[in-house]
Design a protein around this nucleic acid. Sequence first.
DNA 1: AATATAAATGTAAACGTTTAAATAGGAGGA
DNA 2: TCCTCCTATTTAAACGTTTACATTTATATT
Lengths: 331, 331
Amino acid sequence: MNIKDIANKCNLSVATISRVINNDPKVADSTRKKVLSVIDKYKFVPNITGRSLRTQKSNKILVLLPTMSNQFYSEIIQGIEETAEEKGYAILVAVTNLQEHQEIKYLHMLRMKHVDGCISLFNTIEADAITSLAKNYPFVQCCEPTMNADVSSVEINNRQAVYDVVKQFIDKGHKTIGMISGDYYKTSELGRETGYQDALRDYGIKFDKNLVVKNFYRYEDGAIGAKKLMAYKPRPTAIVCASDSLALGATSYLKSQGIKVGVDVCVMGFDNTSITTYTSPTLSSINQPRYDLGKESFKLLYEKLQDINSVNKKIILPFQIIHRESTGCDN
Amino acid sequence: MNIKDIANKCNLSVATISRVINNDPKVADSTRKKVLSVIDKYKFVPNITGRSLRTQKSNKILVLLPTMSNQFYSEIIQGIEETAEEKGYAILVAVTNLQEHQEIKYLHMLRMKHVDGCISLFNTIEADAITSLAKNYPFVQCCEPTMNADVSSVEINNRQAVYDVVKQFIDKGHKTIGMISGDYYKTSELGRETGYQDALRDYGIKFDKNLVVKNFYRYEDGAIGAKKLMAYKPRPTAIVCASDSLALGATSYLKSQGIKVGVDVCVMGFDNTSITTYTSPTLSSINQPRYDLGKESFKLLYEKLQDINSVNKKIILPFQIIHRESTGCDN
DNA sequence: AATATAAATGTAAACGTTTAAATAGGAGGA
DNA sequence: TCCTCCTATTTAAACGTTTACATTTATATT
């Protein structure tokens, strides 16, 4: 069953059928009605490959994901998916597992026109490559815009988030505040670490690099970080972490040492993944508006899909600091 | 740059170029060499849409996922992806969020030929619909084959897994063993619950339905289940759970009641997700060979892609029972 | 050398759409 | 009646491949 079959059943040419399908106003109401009824009767659906070949569009967009094992991305993708569907785009999720060759392989889908655009949740390739990619193809970065790249992006103000948390800690009387960060996601990391330093400086606490531990983002790195921080004199009474998994590892270490989390030492996570409410104590965290990060990313991409020369925008969405037991609750 | 351009550069017809691209042996070695060098020089890549239109194949397969927020699926998808890529197939991940209309929408991609086949990690639609789908399109179920449906599938022996765990508990002297299960994934659930009952029966312990709690698969349902089980007289000394999240919820409740997990009460999870090693105590669990579940699923699908009438196979892969602190370790 | 056979290459149709350009059919005006 | 303008519709080309079939060229056989 193709457009020609429908045309025959209607005693019309394929062109008219195509016009009906594509809501072209240049078709008589009576004709349109007849065609639609036949299409409905035979449950005809236009072949997307034929259409793609002719229009040179795939109506698919690629979502590039660093890993599937981070719960954080789930809701972002949902935001992208639902917004994309409204505009008739399907999404195709690809996972790079943080490997550059995988990233390059999947980005090739843009050049090969397998997809019309791409939203990337993380890139390893360098800024110039991103800039040139974004100049030639609809491309948007979500959460982790590459530094110094000219590209549309959506993120939160990572610096401000940690700044605000540290300020709150200082306001509550904490004098020694540690930070456990990672060493991979360059942009957000730098923002978060800068926020930490800026808040200390603005509120008259001298920065000591020994109070910042950087490893990877695994649970065990959080424990390692906490151990190192607890050896610092005077012992920190608050720790801000660059991810929930780090915070979780940190609390587990603290608990193992008989240190009461939320009482002796306050711990703040990042991303507000669902695990935060499953742990004991429940984990305070900084919430990113995940659904909206996805949604706005697609909206930016859509502008590029309409006009590749439209100006690059940087969108900053609001975050929320959510207090739970690990910071002594209810602030 | 298309196949015609290459043909012109080579002073050959498009047919010959196409033959070279598709490794058709009917082309002279010298010609092949020349064509390949030109293809390489201009970095020509055949247009996949044109090819798809002509061959009536998309070389894409759909992976249908119930949710993105379950870490369990990540490695399965990797197994599918890597195996699929070897055969020249790309994968397209779609998430149903456990909604039937989403499932139907995505399965439609099969009928519309947007994808050549589908591996589904979970289906809500009824057995007859699955059977008929599988008869007409390459379709494989992974982990959760629909009961009474005639379809290729890959899974572990869920019944045996729980049977073995319960037997181990009994061998260790446990007399009262509870189970916390869910009420959604019909097939694996039934298997696991049957394994529980069968082991009790085979080793002379009377089954009491009050020792099986069924809710959903959320963390909090695990806590609710544990609470109910702890009210049972005599108090159970072991609990087997149908998922790690349930087990986690259960241990959190037990801990909150001052009950020592792994000493007073042993807890066994299911799926061996990475969270098992992050908790305190670390969580014993039943490991499913996730990568291989994905890999074998694709291999089954590939058989169907070659010949839709090939016989339906049911593959059972081995599981492992992994003891950690929550069952008193090191067995 | 003439012919038969095999190998290499070319020709053209086909896949299912969309869309510019051509055409038909009316309505209205003179 | 004829002409002009619309509007609705058709025609046919185009998108980039693959592939059955036709043709050419090379090789082997007599």
